[in-house]
């Protein structure tokens, strides 16, 4: 197996995730796309860990998983808060940064 097949799979998932983050209006769906991005990174980490024959890749993948769990928790709490305040999780309506 080539190293590149894992890396390009990761790149593909990453870009699909980026598309989702940029294009989705639903807050929950944006969070799902972020999960895609994080998993793409994990594939890279584990592939490089296997390539270099070191456990460090797996260790960092585990850290990413833990951080992702925290991220989902806080992210969903925020989405919930937005929903409670606006009765909608449409991110198009959240434009307080408008200049």
């Amino acid at each position: 197996m080539w190293l590149n097949q894992f890396l390009i799979l990761g790149a593909l998932l990453f870009c699909i995730g980026v598309y989702g983050v940029l294009a989705r209006r639903n807050g929950v769906m944006v969070l799902m796309s972020i999960e895609l991005i994080l998993n793409a990174v994990n594939i890279n980490l584990v592939a490089f860990g296997a390539f270099h024959a070191t456990p460090a890749g797996q260790v960092f993948a585990l850290f990413v998983i833990a951080v992702a769990a925290a991220e989902v928790g806080v992210g969903l709490a925020l989405v919930l808060l937005i929903y409670r305040n606006r009765s909608s999780i449409d991110l198009e309506s959240v434009d307080l940064l408008k200049g």
């Binding site: 929950v28 993948a61 998983i65």
Partner: peptide, 30 residues
């Protein structure tokens, strides 16, 4: 690629917990 522990953790954490969290999020935001 032989990263078994991480693979199992992936299943436990993501499929076991994160997805459930998402489904709850979907339900709660109706």
């Amino acid at each position: 690629v032989g990263a078994e522990f991480t693979g199992v953790t992936q299943v436990l954490v993501y499929i076991g917990a994160v997805i459930v969290l998402f489904l709850f999020g979907i339900m709660l935001t109706r």
